[in-house]
């Protein structure tokens, strides 16, 4: 049941994605990215501080990895 459902959903999605690769138009144009370019819209505004923060948790918790939030994807610098 799950396999059938997955195949029904995944295959069309894959085809859609593959087909879409050739002609994806940015739906948020560069001139619409003023808000995203604001320094407050950074996942890691101060790397030196965020590294320390992640480090504190990594030492005291069992989980590790995918701290995430770093990087962003704005393209508006």
């Amino acid at each position: 049941m799950n396999v059938k459902l997955a195949s029904q959903l995944v295959l069309p999605l894959l085809l859609l994605l593959l087909g879409g690769c050739s002609g994806v138009e940015p739906w948020v144009k560069p001139y619409q990215r003023a808000h995203l370019a604001d320094p407050i819209m950074s996942f890691s505004r101060d790397p030196v501080s965020d590294s320390f923060h992640s480090h504190v948790y990594q030492v005291r918790e069992g989980a590790r990895g995918a701290e995430g939030g770093h990087g962003g994807g704005c393209g508006c610098n």
Partner: peptide
């Protein structure tokens, strides 16, 4: 030991990722 794990994660990935450009 905790720090070594942190090392693996916080040093390479945090420094690598958190100081990387926005895009």
């Amino acid at each position: 030991i905790g720090l070594s794990f942190a090392f693996l994660l916080s040093a390479p990935l945090a420094l690598l990722l958190s100081t990387r450009p926005l895009d």
